[in-house]
Structures are given as structure tokens and as C-alpha cells.
Nucleic acid binder design. Structure first.
Lengths: 383, 383
DNA sequence: GGAGTAAGTTTTACTACGAAAGATATTCGA
DNA sequence: TCGAATATCTTTCGTAGTAAAACTTACTCC
């Protein structure tokens, strides 16, 4: 039985062993021969390197790949044991806390939610700890907890700034480790979702892609050369006030037609409410637009066109192979796909190769899963 | 004496030897101890690895670093021999061909220029070959020739598209190798200049930076994680028609206030000519603006503000530590620095760390030097 | 049931590395 | 002028990781 005690990170694994384990984690069951090809190691090295990993229980010989009837000795795919470890991911928003439990492969096995009535750091930490406790009770072997929120997070887990909560310099990691007595990792929400997309989502096959999120805010994450673009400004929503439509509505800061004004769920609700007199939720607005309501259609199409232009800007600078659209408002990309495509095409060079587009499952669980992935990465990479 | 025969690329060097040689090439004379620190190798390994490199003449023990009087055995800096190899770099524009000769460290030791009267591939190749011949005659050991132009270049040296010349699918590398009987590398001009900035210019100390060029066109190159952002669309001027000023003049394609309309030398000349009646060169317009001429000042400031906004967009997406401004029109950044800063500040998040700005030496020699750097890289990395 | 094929294993020799101890060349202080 | 201190560079040696080649295993196809 795998020890259920303190989490042994993968770090003690030497260079190549670690690389092999990671390759198996990310790209599913792989035979030794396939691993040898991917890593440019010899077949002999693979036997040598995988033996201790199998003996330690980190890798297991999965059943033979069923379908392939090829000549030659059948391969014996190696795989990790996904539920040897579980991870809790929590996303904190301005008015609620969303949590999920995932396996080592980031498959969600449970989720829960708590409303957030108070926003002081200790109170929020209490709610998060309570949610973690509930979720962690449902599975064995919870190895680490990841927490994400909109704002700037320092490497030591301090939230330097979180406008949605009105926080500055809150030692969130420390507050949560005191309460949960588990390893906690804190990260920016957009960067966490970008990493999730990179390791376990639509970005898995690409070494260069971008994630554009729409929801309460607008965010962009870029992966280049298989690594997240980081820096002091990463994940802060720098394009939040990028001008997209000179005729659009103003945002709270007065920028006419900026990304926040055109794309955030709040702004779209507000535009419709101002014209109709009654307040509809973002989902209801999209439903109306889908049903052909003229007003909703106009607002949603304007937003779609703006999103297309935003994707074009990101695409023109970061040269992604794929642009993934995510965030709790991502359904917009489906409802206003035609307008999105038009806005995108208008701002791309006609001779340029357009990027592929992918729309992620929306909703807050996706955000929380992103936080869990940060916990997985920390455990696996040992940072 | 170093052989003056066929160029032995550095490639045969094994992994670490190659890395050491590259480190010395890029970061000047370095002692073994310093190299050990930079590469995380032991001092012992350094003796072992550098011995063959010194014996082969690739590295030489430079004179002791004069100034430093520290206790302990003095270090013996190792250096490459910069003029053991020379490289020719050529930039082809719509109406001229600019060439330079550089050392292995990309220091320019000669330059020359030919007007371009005809634009058919064979005629252009003749002019380029003639220029290469003249330049190569001035130094010993010309190892390779780099050629750059605005357009899309395939990995095999075919110019797939070059709007300035009206070319499609021209096997330029082949045409030039036939005529010069030397190894030729062909590359996109903006990407070549970005690599030059990365290896030997303002980007040397940074693993993440962006280059924005202004001149006959507008270009952007991005380096992330110490590698150029590449892809089918890299270097094509994708932001050339990015909207920067809703009230600006239209570009030839009708985009009002796009990067081309606001920033290219041609458009600035045209704006001033339209208002004054007489045609001034770009340099004269900048001189006038500097001298306080109201019309020129207005046009140049509008351009500066637009450049600032362009830098902001690039900065917000690519998160560079430095944004380098280059291209033959880069003097704009000096003349309209205040407007540039204003435009930049307006589009940056007030809470974000602003990127550092650097302005490159302008002029066509810089473009040609970029082409030479591509030749250097090809020789050193052996692609 | 044998030929063919490819995966996986074992053996062997080699290479690259770090650790540690030694050699060398300087500064600094007595 | 002579150690003591200090840092670079060199040498030696043991170890770990590697490829190459020969071998074993387990299947398909004829």
C-alpha cells in the first residue's frame, strides 16, 4: 500500500527518471519503447530507469494496449496510478469559494462551493479551510492544496494584491497551512488555469499557445517553448482595458469599448439591464441571444466581435498555435462564434496562418481545477 | 595558424564543449572559474573541457584581466578569436542592397551599398553577389553569408513571399550560393535583427524581451525563455495594421490610424508633404520637429504616441523585461520620447511594472548586421 | 510449427562528471 | 622578506549514466 503519510514529492527522482515519470503523467500510458523514442534514450536505459520506478510503485505496467494487433512482441505500457494521490483546488472569487478534488491526472472527482459573506483574510481563510476539510474527507491521500485568485501572488504564497477582495500583502499560504495542516500553494488564477490547460487541457499537444479568459474580468496567459510566460506582470489582466471597439460602452474607469466594458459578464448584464429595465443573469442574456432576441443578440455579438479582436492581438504578438478561450464567461465564444470569427479575421493579416481556436469547459470548477493543477505541479516538480 | 579553408562549424563540439564556447562567444572573455559558475560544472570539468578547445585554437587565453587586484591566484580569462572568422550580412530592401562585414562577435568592420534598379530574382541576386564579392575581398576568412529581407522565408532558404519585391517562391539561397560559391543563409529581416539583439545587442542580458522596429514597415520580434518566438507567422509584420489612433491618417489599405499609417517613414513623409506642399525626407521631418516646427512636431508626436501604444500592446501580451526599439526609423523614439512615454503609460496597467525601453542604433547597417548574425548563428549552431 | 517482427532485458565497455586533494600564483599583513 | 590567506587551476579517482550489441520473449502471419 502506498504510504498515506507525508507527501514524498517526485523531486528525489534523478533527472531522467523524473523526466520519464512526467512524460507518463502527461501523455498517458506509454510503452518503454515509446518512451525511448520520445526521450532519445536507448532501450537499455529504459529498462534500467523504469525498473526502480515500477518497484517503488510510482509506475505500474498497465494492461496490454487492447486494440493494436501488430507483429512483434506486444508492448507493455507503463502508467502512473492516478488516484494514488488526490489534490484539492480552490478558487476564491469576490463572493464565493469554489473547490474541487482531483486525481494526479487532474480529473475532478468531487466539487463543492461556499458563499463568501466576509472578505477579511482570516474569515476567508476559515471558509477555505472548511471547504478543504469537507472535500479532503471524501478521498484518501490528499497530497496538497492549491488555491487561486485574481491578483498578484508572490513566490512565497503571499497575496500582494487582490482587488476583488481588497487585499494587500496577505500571507494566505501561511493562514491556510495553519488551518488545514496540509501543504498549500497559492497562485494567480489565470496562470493556474493556463498551466492546467498546458498540462491537462487543450494546450497539451502544443508548445506554444495562449489562453484568453472572460468572466468577471479578462485575462491572458501565454505558453511559449513549453513554458509559461512569467514575470512580475503575468496574469494581472494587463489587457483588461485594451481598446476593442471605439463605439462600445464605457467601463467603470471610463475607457470606451475596452475589454472590460465589452467582455466581462458584469458589463454585459449591465448593458442589457440598462436597455430593458430588468436585470438578467449572464447566462440568461446568452440564452436570449441564442433564441433570437434582438437586443441581447446585439450586445452579445458586439462582445463576440470584441473577443475576436482581442484574440487577434494576442495571436499577432504571441504567435500561438492555438488560442484557448476559457473562464466562466467562455460560453460567449459559442453563442457569438460568427461575430468572434469576423472580429478575428478583420484583425489578422490576410496572408497569415490563423490560429486554431478551442473553447474550454466554462464554469468555476475549471478555475478550481486550475488551482489543483498548481498543487500537482508543485508536488511533481517539487518547487 | 588557423586554417583558412572550408569552414568547420562548431557543431562537432559535444554538448558541454559547445555550451562553453557559446558562453564565451556571447559573454566575452571568461575565466574557467567564472564559466564553472555559469554552467554549474565543477572546476575539474572545466580544465578537462577547455583543454581541447584551447589546443584546437578555438579558445585562447586572453591576457590577465588588468584591473582586478584580488587575493588568490589570478584568473586566466578565455576568449574566442573574433577575427578568426568573418561574416557578410546583406539586407535587401525595395530599392537598395546594404551589406556589412562582421567578426565572429558581430562587430562591423566594413560596409557597402548598391542601388537596386531591377527587382527580378536573378538581377537582385547578381547585385547581392557583386556586393558580397566586394565586401568579402576586404577581409580574410569569410565563413558564411547572411541575407535578410522583409517577407516569409522557408527553412530551406526559399523566399516564399516578399511584398516589397513582388516575389513569390524565389529560391534565393540557391541563386546566391551559385553566384558567390559560399554558404548562404536567408532569413526574415525582423527575426534576424531580433536574433542580433538577443546575442549581441540590448537583449543580451535578458531572457525575455521584445524588439519593435519602425521604418519602411513595422515589425515585432519576441524572445521568450531565451529563444525567439517562431512559427509560420513570425516576422511578418502582423501588427502592421493594428489600430493605434482612431483619428489618425489612413494607410494605403484604408485602415485609419493603423501602425503603418502612423509609424512608417513613408507615411510620415507623406503626411508632412500633404500639409506643406513640398517633400521632405524622414530625417528632415525629425530635424524640423526637433527644431520646433509646429506641423512636424504634431506629426512626429502623433507617431510617438502611437509607438508608445504599440509598445504597450506588445508589452502587455509578451511581458518583456525590455522593449528595444529598432529599425531605420528608430530615431523617432528619441525625437518624440515624451509622446512615446505618454502613449505607453496610458495603455499600461497603472499597477504593472513598466518595461525598460532601449533604442537601438538605427540605419540600414543594423539590418545588415542582423543578417550577418544569422550567418554567425548558423555557423556556430550548425543548422 | 516455423519465419518474421518488434519489445524488452542483459551484458559490456565507455564516457562524463563531481569530489577531493594538490599545485600555482597572487595579495596581505607581520 | 617571509609566511598566511585566498582563489584559480590541475590532477586523480570513483561513480553514475549511457549506447551498443547480443540476447530473450511474445506475439502475428503464413
Amino acid at each position: 500500500m502506498v504510504t498515506s503519510g507525508t507527501a514524498q514529492p517526485w523531486v528525489p527522482l534523478a533527472g531522467q527518471s523524473h523526466r520519464l515519470a512526467l512524460e507518463v503523467l502527461l501523455h498517458g500510458p506509454l510503452s518503454r519503447a515509446e518512451l525511448a523514442r520520445r526521450t532519445d534514450l536507448s532501450a537499455g536505459s529504459l529498462t534500467r530507469l523504469t525498473k526502480p520506478l515500477v518497484e517503488a510503485g510510482l509506475l505500474v505496467e498497465a494492461g496490454p494496449g487492447a486494440g493494436d494487433l501488430r507483429p512483434g512482441r506486444p508492448s507493455q505500457p507503463l502508467d502512473i496510478v492516478p488516484d494514488a494521490h488526490h489534490f484539492v483546488g480552490v478558487k476564491i472569487t469576490g463572493d464565493a469559494v469554489h473547490g474541487v478534488v482531483t486525481t494526479l491526472r487532474a480529473d475532478v472527482v468531487a466539487s463543492a462551493r461556499r458563499p463568501l459573506d466576509a472578505r477579511t483574510p482570516p474569515e476567508v481563510a476559515d471558509v477555505v479551510a472548511d471547504l478543504v476539510h469537507e472535500l479532503a474527507g471524501q478521498v484518501p491521500n490528499v497530497t496538497a492544496v492549491g488555491v487561486s485568485l485574481g491578483g498578484h501572488v508572490l513566490p512565497d504564497g503571499t497575496v500582494q494584491r487582490a482587488p476583488f477582495l481588497g487585499w494587500t500583502d496577505v500571507p494566505l499560504k501561511q493562514l491556510l497551512e495553519e488551518r488545514t495542516v496540509r501543504p498549500v500553494v497559492v497562485a494567480n488564477d489565470v496562470l493556474a488555469l493556463t498551466e492546467a490547460t498546458h498540462w491537462f487541457g487543450e494546450g497539451r499537444a502544443h508548445s506554444q499557445f495562449a489562453l484568453v479568459t472572460v468572466g468577471a474580468g479578462v485575462g491572458v496567459g501565454v505558453v511559449a517553448h513549453d513554458r509559461l510566460l512569467a514575470g512580475p506582470n503575468a496574469g494581472l489582466g494587463l489587457l483588461g482595458h485594451h481598446a476593442l471597439d471605439p463605439l462600445g460602452p464605457p467601463c467603470p474607469l471610463g475607457h470606451r469599448g475596452c475589454a472590460t466594458a465589452m467582455l466581462t459578464t458584469g458589463s454585459i448584464e449591465r448593458q442589457v439591464a440598462a436597455a430593458r429595465g430588468d436585470l438578467l443573469s449572464y447566462g440568461e442574456v446568452l440564452d436570449l441571444a441564442d433564441a433570437g432576441d434582438e437586443l441581447a443578440r446585439r450586445v452579445v455579438d458586439d462582445a463576440g466581435r470584441a473577443l475576436g479582436r482581442l484574440v487577434a492581438v494576442v495571436s499577432n504578438v504571441a504567435l500561438p498555435e492555438v488560442v484557448v478561450l476559457g473562464g466562466e464567461g467562455a460560453r460567449l465564444a459559442h453563442v457569438a462564434r460568427a461575430a468572434l470569427d469576423a472580429g478575428l479575421a478583420g484583425d489578422l493579416d490576410p496572408l497569415a496562418e490563423p490560429p486554431a481556436l478551442a473553447v474550454q469547459a466554462a464554469g468555476f470548477d475549471a478555475w478550481a481545477r486550475g488551482a489543483a493543477v498548481i498543487a500537482i505541479q508543485t508536488y511533481v516538480l517539487g518547487r
